[in-house]
Write a protein that binds this DNA or RNA. Sequence first.
DNA 1: CGCTTTTCGTTCCAAT
DNA 2: ATTGGAACGA
Length: 627
Amino acid sequence: MESSKTTEDHTRSLLTRLAGPSTNKAGLQSVDKEKVNKIIYEVSKGSAFFENEVKRDAAVTEKINSMLSNYEKIKTQDLTADLVIVDTQLIELDQTRDLSQHICHIDMDAFYASVEERDRPELKSKPMAVGSLGMLTTANYEARKYGVRSAMPGYIAMRLCPQLIIVPNDFAKYTEVSGQIRRIFEKYDPDFSPMSLDEYVSTSELTVEAVIEQIRDEIFRETGLTASAGIAANKMLAKICSDINKPNGQYLLPNDRYAIMEFIAKLPVRKVSVFALKHETVCKSSVASRLLTGQIYIVLGYDISGIGRVTERILEALEVKTCGDIYTQRGILYKLLSPINFGFLLRVYLGIGSTKIESDGARKSISVERTFSTLSKEEDLYNKLKEIAMKLADDLKEENLKCKTITIKLKMPSFQTVTRSKTICRYIQTGHDIFKYDAELPVSLRLMGLRASSFISSDDTQNMGLKRFFSSIPPSEMTSPSKKAKTYPASQENELDRDGVDLIKITTNDDYACPVCTHVLKNIDNTQFNAHIDICLNTVELKTILTTQRSAIMPFSSTVIGHEIQHLSHAYLIFLRPSTTFSSSRKSCSVSGTNEPQHSPSPKLTTATGSSSLLNYFGNSSRQNPG
DNA sequence: CGCTTTTCGTTCCAAT
DNA sequence: ATTGGAACGA
């Protein structure tokens, strides 16, 4: 009996998970969710995506179970002392409440779909979605009646609604409309007009609501599109409120503590999402345009975070379904959640959110990722990676940013995802940690991505000088990574590098300069040298890159960064080849030599040492910091 | 007919 | 401190 209940719970959570992230959206309330979820389940069953979701769901279940077992222990404890702490925290938080201004969040209704309907009115009465058979970006309200929604694969949507019309994305058009809307917002922006919204309200004898209605009306006349709005004391509440009367409606939550508490108490936790401001370039490509007005600025925003599928499940297990339940369960939440998450929930319960209008400062990372039909050939993968690296370099250039950390992301056909990151200044390292995974890694990938982060401010002249110094070293004078490692003081890096040192010691022979990458390879024999060239020829683009890089490009320009990104990611890609394939297809890939590369009894060992050398090789040729 | 489940930036957390 | 993984939304 017990087990059948668990199975039932399990199926239910999986169904909910498969239903996707945005099931509570406007227009979906009347849908028979059970039926829709069942269809999605049936269509998905057996696919790689499905299997991966099963795993992820199991992971969440496990997390919840361990939390619940803690819960059982805590239940019997006396929480009086903890409640005192929590209640003190609540009082302190309450004192930070700022009810001095109105913040408005305007959200376009089914933005992309509405644009398409506007341009092709015959679509209005028909179920329609924007996107492709692979993935939908949004759906019109007619389609939502069938359970079709954004972030749903088109072919699943077709099962839910066979007469669905799928219109391809036209991002240029949406960006253009975005600009139109923004120009309307700017009229109310004190940077462009003399008054803040609150001032406008007080002088024009219009209510806040009337002003927002006026803005929405202006948007409609200008673009033919409808928008919904939420008006409240802070960003979080404004975001939540904009959903209340969607589509083509607005909701004002008075700046009154009691009204806010009342409103939030009965709100399901899943409805909570937080509206944060992001870098403007994000807005350009973002799905909808939004307005945030306060006393100082109007900014286009983009929302993120909040309580989603997973957090909802966790909270549900802890008997928290509405925001009001947070208070009831505050004792155990305090015991079981991290201080950060607990603090977040307390603010949710109080309806306290950020009232900061400025954008949250400089961006912290830029990334590019591409999904493609599964690729298996090394060459294809390299080419794809190069493409991504160059795109990322372009983006960096455009933003005039310089990065220090590079992260590569790979998604297998199984949907299993791995990421690896390194800091460029000292990325010499053996591959122990990476090799922990290589046995499971298949040869083929369905996605590759690169991310640049840890931006170095442009006035960091010290780094500039360092970089310039290394760029000026002629290739022939570049020492081997392991030799450099020896110059390190006793440290963890030194420990990690010991493999490389050992390898070097054992081998014989002379130094060769590779004709492809022009890199000098120390202490390797003919076979190994040829193997190296073989690899280099597989990545022949490197030749141009390295030659250019070594000539007179300004050190630390974003171009160089781009090349380094590409360079480093090549190393990672090679590095992440599965041992079996790697060792069978190119047995002698080692560049700096191994104990017994040609007749190793253990293919795994051969690969490990060979690839480890490869990383050293790539690391070295990208100018490592000597310490 | 059978195959097709994105993209991006931030933040948090756990492990080390 | 650094890193890998995952959540989040649309």
